[in-house]
Nucleic acid binder design. Structure first.
Length: 235
DNA sequence: GTCCAGGGCCGTT
DNA sequence: AACGGCCATGGA
């Protein structure tokens, strides 16, 4: 017995509703003209193994200092950048990673983010992965949430529920990603539909796993216990 | 005080 | 290929 990705999606959607990620600060965009894609990319780097509540503090600091823009990240003194993003943790390496990306966008795409996302998706993915500080999840988050590319994001939660529920007994990032994309694209063949469901499902997995399928799971209240082998084994 | 968070890199097997 | 140590803050 296993839970199909599409069934997981339907169940989570029914319980949580649409998430409409990436969680950008909408109030900010009313008062500013910065491209939200910058905020998504910067947030994707800042949230590496970090609680989003801490990332929000760093983002707020960047905004208050008008640095929520790749061009300004490129100009800012790195010591100042470290200070602003400090609440997000791992701030020494993350400052370098933000600098890396900003230099990359300037040198290779003339600071034009449309040029970046006009590139063929898997060519761009390979390129992002070659940057120091951009791994698979960060690259795919950038491609999906900023670039609207049909790429499913796998994270620690996805890996956990894959094994625990189970969905399919897979370990590697690529295998899990391929499996979800194969299953979901069967029902959603159009690119924009895939973007939408990959977007929603990843967001739903995050809130679901935070609430129930934690490292120490809260199975008693879990919304998918009936479909979960792990739950059936512990009762 | 302890645990953990929307990872990734690097060195060692 | 796979694994362990490391990076750091703030909330539960």
């Amino acid at each position: 017995m296993k839970l199909e990705p599409i069934t997981l999606y339907d169940t989570l959607l029914e319980n949580y509703g649409k998430q409409n990620w990436w969680p950008v600060d909408h109030l900010y965009h009313i008062n500013n003209n910065t491209d939200p894609r910058f905020e998504i990319i910067i947030g994707a780097i800042l949230t590496q193994n970090t609680a989003w509540s801490n990332v929000e503090k760093a983002i707020k600091n960047l905004k208050q200092n008008k640095k929520m823009d790749i061009k300004n990240i490129n100009k800012i003194d790195i010591a100042e950048l470290k200070k602003l993003i400090k609440p997000s943790g791992f701030y020494n390496q993350k400052a370098i990673r933000l600098k890396n990306f900003s230099r990359y966008l300037k040198n290779n795409y003339s600071n034009n983010i449309d040029n970046l996302f006009n590139k063929e998706t898997y060519e761009l993915r390979k390129e992002l992965l070659s940057l120091n500080g951009i791994g698979q999840e960060t690259a795919d988050s950038i491609l999906l949430y900023a670039g609207k590319k049909p790429v499913f994001v796998v994270d620690a939660y996805t890996k956990r529920i894959c094994k625990r529920i189970p969905i399919k007994n897979l370990d590697s990032y690529n295998d899990i990603q391929k499996y979800f994309q194969k299953k979901l694209s069967k029902k959603y063949s159009k690119k924009q539909d895939q973007v939408k469901i990959y977007n929603e499902l990843h967001a739903l997995i995050v809130i679901f796993a935070k609430q129930f399928c934690k490292k120490k799971p809260d199975c008693e209240m879990c919304i998918i216990q009936k479909k979960c082998k792990y739950y059936k084994n512990i009762i």
